[in-house]
């Protein structure tokens, strides 16, 4: 049971949240301009790293806000929780 720090409500058990997959994959502004391959890349391809992973969570049982979490996929340690519609990708810790 991970302990996730909701940026608004504070630390809560994982059970209050829903997972939203990899973060910082912006919906293309004009999908019609994308080739099939580029659109497929947006739809289906994710980095699935071993180690630091930036991912989206929503505090489903709380304030219903979406936010980003940087979590190590091996140790599950959370190094960063941050908000922002699509914060520029920074260096992970």
């Amino acid at each position: 049971m991970l302990l996730i720090e909701c940026p608004w409500c504070g630390p809560r058990d994982e059970i209050e949240f829903a997972y939203g997959g990899e973060a910082h994959i912006a919906r293309p502004a004009d999908p019609s301009k994308l080739s099939d391959a580029e659109w497929a890349e947006f739809l289906f391809f994710r980095s699935n790293p071993k180690g630091a992973h930036r991912e989206r969570w929503v505090h489903a049982a709380g304030c219903r806000r979406w936010f980003n979490v940087e979590r190590d996929t091996v140790s599950y340690r959370i190094s960063r929780v941050y908000t922002g519609a699509c914060e520029p990708v920074g260096e992970g810790q």
């Binding site: 409500c9 809560r12 059970i15 209050e16 049982a61 709380g62 304030c63």
Partner: peptide, 10 residues
């Protein structure tokens, strides 16, 4: 106050 879970109920 808090929005949270009590058993299986929000």
């Amino acid at each position: 106050c808090a929005q949270t879970l009590l058993a299986r109920s929000g």
